[in-house]
Amino acid sequence: GTEIELESKNGQREHYTATSEDEARKIIEKAVRRGIKRIELRGASEQLIRDMQEIAKQIGLQYRTDGSL
């Protein structure tokens, strides 16, 4: 699965493990709508990382991946 670590603007951290790319995408989209400061992805697919970079650029988000592409 993909591990997703979120940090909201007030510094609250949340951790999710998505079993599918679809689920990961839903978690990320929800977080973005809620207003999130930072997202870290571990074990994400190349496609998901590309999507994440696109989203991050659009809304000026900090993100990090573990680089295991």
Rank of each mutant, 00 (worst) to 15 (best):
residue 68 S to K: 06
residue 12 Q to V: 10
residue 40 E to H: 13
residue 28 I to Q: 14
residue 28 I to N: 00
residue 38 R to Q: 05
residue 32 V to L: 15
residue 8 S to E: 10
residue 32 V to P: 00
residue 69 L to H: 04
residue 9 K to E: 13
residue 67 G to E: 08
residue 25 R to Y: 10
residue 42 R to L: 05
residue 51 D to I: 14
residue 6 L to G: 01
residue 11 G to M: 02
residue 15 H to T: 12
residue 26 K to C: 11
residue 15 H to A: 07
residue 67 G to Q: 05
residue 47 Q to P: 04
residue 53 Q to P: 03
residue 60 G to C: 15
residue 33 R to A: 12
residue 2 T to G: 05
residue 20 S to C: 04
residue 58 Q to C: 13
residue 7 E to C: 11
residue 7 E to L: 14
residue 22 D to C: 11
residue 59 I to C: 15
residue 32 V to E: 00
residue 27 I to M: 04
residue 57 K to C: 09
residue 17 T to V: 12
residue 36 I to G: 01
residue 61 L to P: 05
residue 45 S to W: 03
residue 53 Q to R: 09
residue 49 I to K: 07
residue 53 Q to H: 12
residue 35 G to E: 04
residue 38 R to N: 04
residue 19 T to R: 14
residue 41 L to Q: 00
residue 65 T to I: 12
residue 55 I to V: 06
residue 60 G to S: 05
residue 9 K to T: 13
residue 29 E to W: 15
residue 9 K to R: 11
residue 13 R to C: 10
residue 40 E to F: 15
residue 39 I to F: 05
residue 45 S to Y: 02
residue 9 K to I: 13
residue 34 R to F: 06
residue 67 G to M: 05
residue 20 S to P: 02
residue 39 I to K: 00
residue 51 D to H: 13
residue 65 T to V: 15
residue 66 D to M: 03
residue 62 Q to T: 12
residue 4 I to E: 00
residue 10 N to D: 14
residue 27 I to D: 00
residue 39 I to S: 00
residue 38 R to P: 00
residue 60 G to R: 05
residue 30 K to T: 11
residue 42 R to A: 05
residue 63 Y to M: 15
residue 56 A to G: 05
residue 50 R to E: 05
residue 27 I to F: 11
residue 43 G to T: 04
residue 57 K to G: 06
residue 45 S to T: 07
residue 8 S to N: 13
residue 47 Q to I: 07
residue 35 G to N: 05
residue 8 S to C: 13
residue 64 R to E: 15
residue 1 G to S: 12
residue 6 L to D: 01
residue 5 E to H: 12
residue 4 I to K: 01
residue 24 A to C: 05
residue 37 K to S: 08
residue 22 D to M: 08
residue 56 A to T: 04
residue 51 D to W: 15
residue 9 K to S: 12
residue 42 R to Y: 09
residue 63 Y to A: 13
residue 40 E to K: 14
residue 45 S to P: 05
residue 13 R to M: 07
residue 1 G to F: 13
residue 58 Q to P: 02
residue 4 I to H: 01
residue 37 K to V: 12
residue 66 D to Q: 05
residue 25 R to C: 04
residue 50 R to I: 07
residue 35 G to Y: 04
residue 21 E to V: 07
residue 30 K to C: 13
residue 46 E to H: 10
residue 48 L to N: 01
residue 23 E to S: 04
residue 23 E to V: 07
residue 17 T to N: 06
residue 5 E to P: 00
residue 34 R to L: 14
residue 16 Y to E: 01
residue 44 A to R: 02
